[in-house]
Design a protein around this nucleic acid. Structure first.
Lengths: 109, 109
DNA sequence: TTACTATATGAGTATATGCTCATATAAAGC
DNA sequence: GCTTTATATGAGCATATACTCATATAGTAA
């Protein structure tokens, strides 16, 4: 019996990919660092305390997912959040985690 | 210079973990299959066309993340979505993907 | 040109996780 | 007890990806 799926395999793969991009703590740190506006790679390296190579790689991942935009200015490259849904997504996940952690002591104070 | 992060490493890891749970197409298929109510493992195997072993494993992952609940009735185990934020999360991701696709499509028009 | 700076990337390694096969566990009926 | 059915899980393999180190590329200035 063939089952009727409302979303194609292709669509599900894209949704999954999007969640995967958000599933690395370092990338979340980078997004968090960009919450108040665009930042150069070096600024992001300082803010996240990551290595330059690693920060650069994660920024490519975020850019390929169209979650951040790239602006070059001289030697520097500035990245900024380009998809406003990111903010809401993170809010929602934080919210449901807070509810879950309500029984325990929270790291979200 | 120490940077002030608004979310602890622990909190970021938990948020990342939550996104990771949603980053597998098979798990999204399972959630989609449960959108209209609870289902037994066998029903989910049929609906997703996966193997019993694999479906069972993914259900454990979803249950550990408190996204689905488990109810045992005789020989069968019924799973159901227990975290309503799942619906909104998927809606939002679908929405922002649609926008992206519309832009791409527009570029070819 | 050379030197310096900011960013990106190739190569290699380590770890995580998804999948399958086979088997284990649990519940019900005989 | 034994058998059947529904679900869970251990073991092993394959792949994906995060990380580091070293180097490449691009832009600026002398």
């Amino acid at each position: 019996m063939k089952n009727p799926r409302s979303l194609s395999d292709e669509a599900l793969a894209q949704i999954a990919r999007r969640f995967a991009v958000l599933s690395e703590p370092m990338r979340l740190r980078l997004l968090q660092a960009m919450f108040d506006g665009e930042k150069s790679v070096n600024e992001l390296v300082d803010l996240t305390e990551g290595t330059q190579a690693n920060v650069s790689r994660h920024l490519q991942t975020l850019a390929q997912a169209h979650m951040v935009g790239r602006r070059k200015e001289g030697l520097q490259v500035f990245y900024a959040i380009s998809d406003p849904s990111i903010f809401k997504l993170c809010e929602m996940v934080c919210g449901s985690l807070e509810k879950q952690l309500a029984r325990q002591a929270g790291a979200f104070a």
